[in-house]
Amino acid sequence: MTTALNGLKVLDFSTLLPGPFATLYLADLGAEVIHIESPTRPDLVRLMPPYSNGQAASHNYLNRNKQSVALDLKNPESIALLKSKISEYDIVVEQFRPGVMQRLGLDYESLAKIHPQLIYCSITGYGQTGHYKDRAGHDINYLALSGIAGHSGRKTGGPPPLGIQVADVAGGSLHAVIAILSAVIERSQSGLGQYIDISMTDCAVTLNNMAAAAEIAGNERQQPEHSHLNGGTFYDYYETRDGRYLAIGSLEPQFMLGLAQLLELPVVAEKGTSFTLQDRQIVKHAIKEKILSKNFSEWNELFSLHDVCVEPVLSLDEALHSKLADERGWLVAVPLQENSTKKEQQLACPIKFSRSKIRYEFIGKSLGLDFL
């Protein structure tokens, strides 16, 4: 079997998470990725604990299957070298603030004159235009400005600090991959590359999808614990007697009826579809009190036998070592180097093809000095 993106070559100037996660997908799918890094200012991902096999575990994962090359972009010789080799590459990914690559002479306009077929993707917090374009930001800022944080969490507790980077990954990284591969397909028809402007905040806004559709239609103002999916109905998390949690998502009539029967709470079936605040609170209170009556393991045993959209809230360790993780191959053993027998456990690529293979050749490498 061959990889799906075999033959594509990528120059990756990005750091930290959004760009590197995007190019990780490209590398896993078969593209040749050269990660360009500063020889004097290391990518912070290389420094972040914990460590595994003498390197940062995050670096080992995010830079899997990639070659890492040190180049001083303030050195004219490095710029000349990059320009001399740019025609060998299909894609450039960069994550600097707007204007930086232009000052270096590595912007799309400059490189497209040399290589018109080049696809060039810039990932930033706020995009290349608008008065926010030069502002610094992190995932929590993008979620705040996109409206996601504003209609999440509890009325009394405020927005939740999430344990993952939603805007960085689901916003920036994955939208970048979609855009890049779309441009590759378009290039096969036009013969030309193009520039891609990815704003993590723009992309995060689209993750509102259902809530935004209701807001724009003017039918339902989005606020915490108000709509179907943000705690306004019994679609929520419930504490068990021993301090663990269950996720209850039994929205459809057949699941709602099954939940009512299992919990011996006819009020769930009677008022579960009500739109009045009072009825919603009655249903949630009844479920809350019932779930508090048994331990986590007791509820798991019961709900594992019934298909009603109720599942345990697992810790990350429990999730990664669950039966589901094993059956679906969430973890993969990756060689430390090409053809090495020593391996490191990492998250696997979740994409599964019928013919094309996923590539797991080596973990993130130490910083190289030669740009081959």
Results as ranks from 00 to 15, higher is better:
278 Q>V: 11
56 A>W: 03
187 R>A: 10
10 V>H: 03
110 S>F: 10
77 E>R: 12
324 L>G: 06
10 V>L: 07
125 G>V: 06
188 S>N: 13
286 A>V: 04
192 L>S: 14
333 A>V: 00
240 T>S: 12
104 L>C: 01
198 I>K: 02
281 Q>M: 06
42 P>S: 10
325 A>S: 14
332 V>H: 05
112 A>P: 00
48 M>R: 05
62 L>E: 11
212 A>R: 14
367 L>S: 03
109 E>T: 15
339 N>E: 15
179 A>S: 15
260 A>G: 08
193 G>L: 01
202 D>T: 10
128 Q>A: 03
225 E>D: 03
56 A>M: 10
31 A>C: 13
3 T>W: 04
155 K>R: 10
343 K>G: 06
193 G>R: 02
299 W>R: 02
30 G>T: 04
67 Q>G: 04
345 Q>A: 13
65 N>G: 09
309 C>I: 04
368 G>H: 05
340 S>Y: 05
18 P>K: 07
302 L>D: 10
370 D>S: 15
88 E>K: 08
2 T>I: 14
371 F>G: 07
280 R>W: 08
259 L>G: 02
264 E>T: 00
110 S>T: 15
192 L>W: 05
23 T>W: 06
206 T>A: 09
6 N>P: 03
182 S>M: 14
55 Q>G: 09
60 N>T: 08
271 K>N: 02
133 K>A: 00
370 D>C: 12
181 L>A: 03
238 Y>V: 09
161 P>S: 12
220 E>Y: 14
343 K>Y: 04
128 Q>K: 03
294 K>E: 12
243 G>T: 01
238 Y>H: 10
335 P>K: 03
328 R>S: 05
166 V>S: 03
132 Y>I: 01
177 V>P: 01
5 L>F: 13
348 A>H: 11
255 F>D: 02
302 L>H: 10
60 N>C: 13
229 L>T: 12
64 R>K: 13
45 V>H: 08
274 S>R: 04
130 G>Y: 11
119 I>R: 02
84 S>Y: 00
1 M>L: 13
346 Q>S: 07
161 P>G: 07
130 G>A: 08
289 E>L: 13
